[in-house]
């Protein structure tokens, strides 16, 4: 299940079926005419993404690296490219990969400022590239938690792709075991929820450790509106 992506090597062989490229043939522009019917669906999908000039791969990504790097899958992304829930074997492997790639911040997770966390939870700005690029120099990127979760019970506009987090800290407290657990979930949630839809905000360098601390305060600080 957890395959390393070695599609490039296989494609070189497939690409030997060379014909003269058509006048506007996309395959002709990249590597000669390729027999796409000789590939598995997985191979063709990777070929289309990585080898057919379908994306603006030369653009820089805000988290570092190039746009192309975003479309080359890591182990968890590859294992979770499935319909529905993972089988138990895949789930175990994903959990293991997530644990291995998890990093606690120096000195351990802590709670920041819930007011700053509220701003980050509401903001959907950041990391978008393509026809328009989000400029992190002029506006801070957010975590966009409300796109998927209810948080402050007084906030009316919230998504339901994830569970409600209203009163999250009020029912759980905020001792060190809770703080450590919430950090693991925000930073690399596949440790507990293999193939979850939720982004790996820490592992993917989407939020800084300082920002994660603020979001955690929004969830766990007794004074936060989430817990009123």
């Amino acid at each position: 299940m957890l395959r390393n992506k070695t599609v490039g090597a296989g494609l070189a062989v497939l690409a030997s079926t060379v014909l003269i490229a058509g006048c506007d043939g996309w395959m002709g522009e990249t590597s000669g005419e390729v027999d796409i019917t000789a590939m598995s669906a997985d191979e063709l999908a990777d070929y289309l993404v990585l080898e057919t000039d379908s994306y603006r791969f030369e653009q820089e990504a805000q988290e570092g690296g190039s746009a192309r790097d975003r479309m080359v899958q890591d182990g968890i992304q590859a294992a979770c490219s499935i319909e529905g829930d993972p089988d138990s074997g895949t789930a175990g492997e994903v959990i293991a990969m997530a644990r291995e790639s998890y990093e606690a911040p120096p000195g351990g997770p802590r709670l920041g400022n819930w007011r700053r966390g509220a701003e980050l939870a509401r903001s959907g700005y950041g990391y978008r590239i393509g026809h328009r690029n989000d400029d992190h120099g002029t506006r801070e990127a957010g975590g966009n938690c409300y796109a998927c979760h209810q948080m402050d019970p007084a906030e009316e506009l919230y998504g339901t792709l994830g569970p409600s987090l209203a009163g999250y800290g009020a029912t759980r407290g905020n001792d060190s075991s809770v703080v450590n657990y919430v950090h693991q979930v925000v930073s690399n949630p596949h440790q507990y929820f293999p193939c979850t839809k939720m982004p790996r905000f820490g592992r993917n360098n989407f939020l800084s450790e300082e920002q994660i601390a603020h979001v955690m305060a929004y969830l766990l600080d007794p004074d936060s509106p989430v817990n009123q």
């Binding site: 063709l44 999908a45 490219s81 982004p199 790996r200 993917n204 989407f206």
Partner: peptide, 16 residues
């Protein structure tokens, strides 16, 4: 068939 795989292909900064 490749399109179906693309529909489920995780990637990007948010793993979507």
């Amino acid at each position: 068939d490749a399109g179906e795989k693309l529909f489920f292909r995780r990637g990007g900064a948010m793993d979507f």
